[in-house]
């Protein structure tokens, strides 16, 4: 194979030679994302009633949370609204401890934090959310959790502050 020699020993050369970089600075791409009819229902229930809802597939019976219009496997439109619990079970989890830029702000996201894939009781699909624990030794797959709602709610996933681990 014809390998390229460029790039060899570059690291050493860089120290001696200026290489200009152009910075994007404060540039950003603003968006106005619509939550759609299904997402809006879910989020307005969170905001107004501190309640989770899903939709049931008429074909396979799966309850989708958050709701969506189409069941992928069945390719059927979903219409039946189903209330689901604000309690559930940890399917899997992690505790994030490395630094990274939050693309929604352009700033470093505060770490550490724990988050989980959570199955709400009555739902067949799962949601992601924060946990109130950052010690992985204290979190278990299968642990019971309950949503803790924010005082001020605006119609976003963050209307739930986090899920609290329910200790026996």
């Amino acid at each position: 194979m014809a390998g390229e020699k460029n790039g060899e020993g570059k690291e050493a050369k860089e120290e001696r030679k200026e290489l200009i970089k152009l910075e994007s600075g404060e540039a950003e791409q603003p968006f106005r994302w619509s939550a759609g009819t299904y997402g809006s229902r879910f989020l307005s229930e969170l905001r107004d009633n501190c309640r989770f809802v899903g939709v049931r597939c008429p074909c396979c019976g799966r309850v989708y949370v958050p709701p969506r219009r189409v069941c992928g496997p069945c390719f059927r439109e979903l219409t039946e609204l189903v209330p689901v619990s604000d309690e559930g079970e940890v399917i899997t989890f992690t505790v994030v401890s490395f630094g990274f830029v939050d693309p929604s702000t352009g700033r470093q996201k505060p770490v550490p934090y724990g988050y989980a894939v959570i199955k709400l009781d009555g739902a067949d699909t799962y949601i992601l959310h924060y946990l109130d624990e950052t010690d992985p030794g204290k979190i278990k797959v299968g642990a019971r959790v309950k949503a803790v709602f924010a005082e001020e709610r605006s119609g976003s996933m963050l209307d739930v502050k986090h899920f609290a681990l329910l200790r026996a």
Binding site: W33, S34, A35, G36, T37, Y38, G39, S40, R68, R69, V70, E77
Partner: peptide, 12 residues
């Protein structure tokens, strides 16, 4: 502006 529908809804 097709506000009530997201990408997935439009595609469906």
């Amino acid at each position: 502006e097709r506000r009530p529908d997201g990408y997935a809804d439009l595609v469906y």
